[in-house]
Amino acid sequence: MSVLVFSSLLFAASVAAGLLGAMTGLGGGVVIVPVLALLFKVDIRYAIGASLVSVIATSSGAAIAYVREGLSNIRVGMFLEVATTLGAVLGAYLAAKISGHWIAIIFGVVLLYSAISSFRSNVDHLVPIQPGTLASKLELTGRYTTADGTHAYSAERVPFGFGLMFGAGTLSGLLGIGSGAVKVLAMDQVMRLPFKVSTTTSNFMIGVTAAASAGIYLSRGYIDPTIALSVMLGVLCGSLLGTRVLVKARVSMLKQVFALVVVVLGIEMIYSGITGRI
């Protein structure tokens, strides 16, 4: 296969991953690494390097759409980024220490978790602001407007959420993914922030978290320009297209199909890791 054909196939697969990831809310990055490693037989280190770059492109490229909605909370995001960036640096160091087999197995588990969590029902929390709490002192409060008026909200269980974010950052640095599923878990389930605030703030954070391990990846040679370019452009095109289609399409059927694909990839990654094929 020539480099042109290889790059074109890589681009096409990345468009599909970005499109489906954006439409279903699972994120495109999470399937890029297994597709590269299992289908294209690319070394897992090049795969996670290319995936990390595409995560930054999607986060920065889609920021304007999220900011216009006016729901992301810049202070909550920045505060939790202290945890995710430190975690990402640790994850990038661990990536060099842990063998490819283990990375494949951990990746498989995260894929299974992402698929399951995408079916959790979204209960919108609304914790009232109370002066004197840790959340108030750290300004982790805000207000957002819906059809029924303006609601004020506050975060809860801040240290637990912060700790979980450190874990999300470590996974991001280790696996080259945005780990949006864990970030939303920390904000929505643990800190009880409104669901929409959690998802939009998560997008804000993903790029910054990924950049914290990207420098280390670059210096280790994980970012191969030929692979990363095709993947980055593909995922960027796919996800920007996906956010446009999202508004019009009914996605529940699609979401089930894509979640099933993610489950299959997860099992395949675990199996390949155990048998030593990755």
Binding site: S60, A63, I64
Partner: peptide, 30 residues
């Protein structure tokens, strides 16, 4: 909100510039 909007506009510019430079490199490479 004003702060975030100006930052998001800057990000879109950065992503576009990055894409243009790397696509140009990609075409030379091919």
């Amino acid at each position: 909100h004003e702060l975030e909007l100006s930052v998001a506009g800057m990000l879109r510019f950065g992503v576009t510039a990055a894409a243009v430079v790397s696509i140009f490199g990609g075409l030379l490479y091919l």
